[in-house]
């Protein structure tokens, strides 16, 4: 069963008691797969309890799909075990790399968009989907630099991966805003060139702002509320695409649970509006 077209929240263990006691109405919870790769203990107990009441989105940060090497077989096997055990409605990963040979660098690092990297990423996505037996959603990154050797636009690159591999896309609207602002391009143009029909989930999160001589440098830090221009882009996207499963991400300086619920409510209002408009049009 796919994720519902409703807001979801990133699960933080410090909110477990609040969720268990109040059972808020939410479409789903999303967790980082790597946090549940231990043998046992509280992480698995909490996820089991959460899974009884909510849909689950499993979000990976460690597959390094954008690297030169094939995905790590051990990591894939652990993902497969998690998927078998928790039956998530969705599995997603990033257009990025995070491992280099034997080192794990714990960040989503960028790649040039070339014919070579397109082929590598498609091969890796094929292998992931074949091994896990499910469709992967691939997320667009926040980027801070460009590469002179790139020959494809990011939107073209993502669209081609989806076309060749049959994978879905995870549209992170904050990442679109961050990258476009950083590269002095218009996020509306980016979204107009992006294959919305392939989107299986939307992410919304906060960013930090620094200053460079040429203008702002936005940093995707998931440490604050979703910014107003990102809400605006999200509204326009939902008006075009219709309602989509929408995650609020807040991973650093995690606030009280009620703050996250308020962000989810804001997304819910936009989704409801889109559904009403859609019903009216029919």
């Amino acid at each position: 069963m796919p994720l519902p077209n409703a807001p979801g929240l990133g699960f933080k263990p410090e909110h477990f008691a609040a969720i268990r006691d109040t059972r808020p109405q939410l479409g789903f919870f999303e967790v980082h797969a790597e946090n549940y790769m231990g043998a046992g203990g509280p992480p698995h107990r909490q996820l089991t309890a959460l899974r009884q009441d909510y849909g689950l989105s499993l979000h990976g940060v460690g597959l390094s799909i954008g690297g030169p090497d094939r995905p790590d077989a051990g990591h894939l096997a652990r993902l497969r075990d998690l998927i078998t055990r928790y039956q998530p409605a969705s599995f997603s990963e990033h257009l990025a790399w995070s491992s280099h040979e034997t080192d794990y660098l714990n960040d989503l690092l960028p790649l040039p968009y070339t014919a070579e990297t397109l082929q590598l990423v498609c091969d890796h996505v094929d292998e992931v989907q074949a091994t896990l037996g499910c469709r992967l959603l691939l997320e667009n990154p926040s980027t801070y630099v460009l590469f002179a050797q790139s020959t494809l636009a990011e939107t073209e690159f993502l669209a081609e991966i989806a076309r060749r591999t049959g994978c879905g896309l995870l549209l992170d609207v904050n990442n679109v805003f961050v990258s476009c602002t950083n590269h002095r391009t218009d996020p509306q143009d980016w979204l107009a060139a992006f294959p919305l029909a392939a989107v299986g989930e939307v992410h919304l999160g906060g960013h930090a702002t620094e200053a460079l001589p040429s203008g702002p440098l936005l940093i995707d830090d998931h440490g604050s509320p979703v910014a107003d221009p990102v809400w605006e882009l999200y509204s326009r996207t939902i008006a075009r695409a219709g309602a989509l499963p929408t995650l609020i991400e807040w991973d650093n300086d995690v606030p009280e649970f009620s703050i996250l619920l308020a962000e989810a409510a804001r997304a819910a209002a936009i989704l409801t509006q889109a559904e009403m408009r859609h019903a009216h049009a029919c």
Partner: peptide, 9 residues
């Protein structure tokens, strides 16, 4: 190949 819109950044 690392660059930016304003390459000196």
């Amino acid at each position: 190949g690392t660059t930016a819109q304003a390459p000196d950044e």
